[in-house]
Simulated assay, not measured.
Amino acid sequence: MPTPETSNEDPYMLGRNYYASARLAMLHLLIHAQFGYLLHPSIKLPSAEKTEEQLRIADVGTGTGIWIGELTRERPQAQIDGFDISDEQYPPEKWYGPNVSMSQLDIFKPLPEVLKGKYDVVHLRFFMTVASDDNVQVVVNNLKGMLKPGGYLQWVERDWMSKFPEKAERSDDAHTQITCYHRTFFPKTRWINSLPVLFQQCGLEVLDHVTQTPLPIYRKPWNEDCLIGWAAIGDMIESQEEKNWYKELLAEAAENAKKGWYVDWELVICIAKNAV
């Protein structure tokens, strides 16, 4: 079965144009609305006033940098560095002030020496389309490597795939058929439910592991955010016959969502501390 083509250097399959950036903005706002914080309350940092040693925070897989932009309002004196394998969605750095930098980093490769032991907090979210059961521990190890002793790691994820069967029948609903089709090229994501174990395996102390289903008032925008991402995947399908099949299912899924269909999946937040 043909699958969407992606760059060897950039495994992200949901696009990096302005539609994709708008989708990520909505995604961020939904998470913030659901939880009410940018940094989990178990992350104990000095007060927002300037301290003797500048607080350093990293956002890995920063995308559009919107999380950083919001955090600068809470932590205006902190040095906040954004990293992503692609810089295509970065905003102008001057919009975020002098204490923000954005650069490129492949977190799946060996960690540059300059980043080791540098950060009080490392934040990452939504790697479900790029991290697999086979390589996710590499990511966790690199994130830990970025932390100062006593530094915090915050990982935000969504557990979507586990709510569906491994294979779909043609008689199944459109969401199930599309999700199972995605399994043919998305990485295996059993690791999402094992984040605490993965953290502990590299010596991190797990402080909290939160799972929440989206509140009913946010089901509609979550559905729509998902459908926008799926449309981006559909645009990348090479086979015209397969593309037509996919778009018909996508239209059906959109109609079902309008009628109240939704997936009872979970948002996952795992917080850990580098006790070394």
Rank of each mutant, 00 (worst) to 15 (best):
V130L: 07
M161N: 14
P98K: 11
L124S: 13
L39Q: 01
N193R: 14
N141L: 08
T184A: 10
Y152E: 00
L38W: 05
Q201C: 08
T6F: 09
I43P: 00
V140W: 03
K259V: 10
D81F: 07
K220D: 11
T3G: 07
Q212A: 12
A131E: 06
F164D: 09
E113N: 03
S162L: 10
E169Y: 12
E242M: 10
K144I: 05
K188G: 11
M13E: 10
Q89I: 04
M102R: 02
Q212T: 09
A257M: 11
M128A: 15
S101V: 00
N223I: 09
D235R: 15
L39G: 00
N135V: 07
I68S: 02
L111F: 03
K50H: 08
G15K: 03
R73L: 11
L153P: 00
M26L: 13
E205M: 10
K243T: 06
P76N: 02
P165L: 06
R16C: 08
K273L: 07
V140T: 08
Q137Y: 04
G69A: 07
G36P: 02
I217D: 12
K44G: 01
D225A: 13
L250D: 05
K220Y: 12
L27P: 01
K258S: 14
M128F: 15
L30R: 02
E9F: 12
M236Q: 15
V276S: 15
N223E: 10
P2W: 08
K109D: 05
E255F: 12
E49M: 04
M128D: 09
S103R: 11
G145S: 05
Q200D: 08
Y181W: 13
W245Y: 11
K243Y: 03
M146Q: 08
E53T: 13
Q79N: 10
